[in-house]
Design a protein around this nucleic acid. Structure first.
Lengths: 138, 138
DNA sequence: CCTAAGCTCTGTAGGTGATACAGGCTCAAG
DNA sequence: CTTGAGCCTGTATCACCTACAGAGCTTAGG
């Protein structure tokens, strides 16, 4: 064997969707808004995706899943692309998100307590709904 | 002084927006979709909001922030509103929401772990190696 | 009293982040 | 050659807002 180099056959759109779990149409959407690059086309006009596109789409999806907006993802991608990946910038964005997520968790835990409290008191008394409201209102 | 009862002067739409941080137009939107009640009107047709509307809008906004859909919020609100509810109904709704909330918590905890874990490996320097990006890129 | 600013009202258009569908082309299998 | 799956494009639809246009009310100043 010459190298460890493996040829990965190019993927069409549905194959990329299957490979990443992304919705078929969303791939085209990400292309039109510039989050995914315009892929090369086969002579017939079909999109031809490589391993690069799989990784990039996974990046986008993972970041979306973590709650980053497409605008933030565009920012992260330029940091990835230009190798000016100063950790500081990324850390700023990610840290802000972490705090946001932690706040959300704290609130949800209070709501959880209020809801299970509601269920515990569900014997016909007319008070418990206030707990839910209070939890949501702080 | 007769009571501890404080008169709170009614608010117009912009005042409610300021009081809650909600967008002016969003208030009207919530009204049209039935998440906020149709407020009483002054003789001139202007909407007149009370403390009740402030609290209700804060409830809605907090719930939205925590990831509840407007549909779910409608459900939460009936839970909060309905004093003439049968215990069975409340139990059903509350239990459904409890599960929903617990799922949301679990999801956010996973996100939190991923974010703080990657941030822990972030050197915070200008080094072009960034743990956060590596994590997103796998 | 008149006017101008600054609210309010309504209807409707635009934006984000997808997702779906229609009508047509391409391609590989039978 | 036909059939069906897969691709193409454009456009519609969805949830959830957000903004604007054009009109009426209301308050302060001259």
């Amino acid at each position: 064997m010459k190298t460890g180099h493996t040829f990965v056959k190019p993927l069409q759109r549905a194959a990329l969707a299957r490979a990443t779990g992304c919705n078929l149409e969303t791939i085209r959407y990400y292309e039109t808004i510039g989050v995914m690059p315009d892929p090369p086309r086969d002579p017939n006009g079909y999109r031809s995706y490589s391993e690069y596109h799989v990784r990039r789409l996974q990046f986008v999806m993972r970041a979306r899943d973590l709650g980053f907006s497409l605008e933030e993802i565009r920012g992260l991608l330029t940091l990835v692309d230009n190798d000016t990946r100063s950790c500081v910038e990324v850390e700023e964005i990610a840290l802000a998100h972490l705090k946001d997520v932690q706040n959300k968790i704290a609130h949800l835990v209070r709501i959880e307590a209020a809801l299970s409290n509601t269920l515990a008191h569900c014997s016909g008394t007319d008070v418990p709904e206030c707990a839910v409201l209070d939890a949501l209102l702080d």
